[in-house]
Design a protein around this nucleic acid. Sequence first.
DNA 1: CCGCAGATGTATCGGTCCGATACATCGAAT
DNA 2: ATTCGATGTATCGGACCGATACATCTGCGG
Lengths: 218, 218
Amino acid sequence: MLELAILGLLHESPMHGYELRKRLLSLLGAIRAAFSYGSLYPTLKRMRQRGLIAEEAPGTPGAEKPLLTGRRARKVYRLTPEGKEHFAQLMSEAGPETADEALFGVHFAFFSRTDPATRLRILEARRRRVEERRERIREALARTAERLDSYGFELQRYGLETAEREVRWLNELIASEQGRNPGQNDFGDRLADPGRPTRSATEDEDSSEPDKGGMRDG
Amino acid sequence: MLELAILGLLHESPMHGYELRKRLLSLLGAIRAAFSYGSLYPTLKRMRQRGLIAEEAPGTPGAEKPLLTGRRARKVYRLTPEGKEHFAQLMSEAGPETADEALFGVHFAFFSRTDPATRLRILEARRRRVEERRERIREALARTAERLDSYGFELQRYGLETAEREVRWLNELIASEQGRNPGQNDFGDRLADPGRPTRSATEDEDSSEPDKGGMRDG
DNA sequence: CCGCAGATGTATCGGTCCGATACATCGAAT
DNA sequence: ATTCGATGTATCGGACCGATACATCTGCGG
């Protein structure tokens, strides 16, 4: 999960842990809690040992005090070919695991790097999951409504409404996906460009992204 | 967290693990994933060792094959006085920890066992937390909107809307709490409406009526 | 000039929780 | 008969989190 997110982010450019965490926060913070350093650093270590990422070598190994603007030692990680392949493989999975709230969110955040068929299957798997949850709440409500105090009732009601809202959202997304030309990917052009010399994303101002509003039809 | 939920449920009646899990699912399943047995049984063991719960003694220690309807050995747990006290102490805490999504949900589910002042503080702590989250999303959106592809944008938009919706919900709950007589608790026991059993918004919405005078008051 | 708060940066530790798995009994359907 | 699903207890490895530690750089007020 965290692994997938790291691989996805390192697709943009090499980064060190602290920066990864900030990007993670701004990318996923809207839907889930940010990963903590207590998971991030051990995961980076593990991924490095597995060869999915590699430490960027500093210029001169002797007396490597000044990194960038005179900062202290930082470990900058970059994606290896194995990591790239592993990411593609993880992203192409569309089983029931991808319906989990957290994993779905990460997948969705990198949807532009997935083919349309996989996107659709993931969205439908998630919808199935939320629909089941919705039905379970309805049953529980019907079964135990008279036993609930007003707070318990309010919790059920709000949870049911939340599930219904997410199903509507997924329906719109699925409709939007199906509205596209099923053979084409009108988002893929920006990611199918392997030769882009990605600068560091710290103060980057590259706004060559005219496409928008594919699903903002309603 | 799980501990708090177990203590709360055992307030109703003694239960064994399997039953606890089912009750947990129907009580909290509307807002969070159910606890798994992988957490439940170790937690029960730990709580028993700490004296918060105790195993219900079977009728006759000799030849105790038939429990209830001839089933196999089950461990029925009941609340000890220490457990009752610990529950009250946990429920009276209203610090920032209680603003966490999961812990807030459990607290809320047992709100009828908390005094109104604590309820109010917990609701306000949660609202503060969600407002901060909402502001972080807004900033991230303003800062990185032009860098986002349509999926990233949609994720931010949906997350922002989710946060705004929860703040509205909390505002209603807080207003409802403040509308009560601050010294009394008119929800103490049961107050289920015997009339219509909770029709939820299946297909209708957009009523946009701001009346909604709090939670089902009589 | 000093100090000190706050951002940057890496890392570990203990603990909670989850998913998978194992094992066993029972009632009902096939 | 036997397979299937619900009931029931339990453990294990792994993922993640919160707290903590430690160190450097920057800017701010005194």
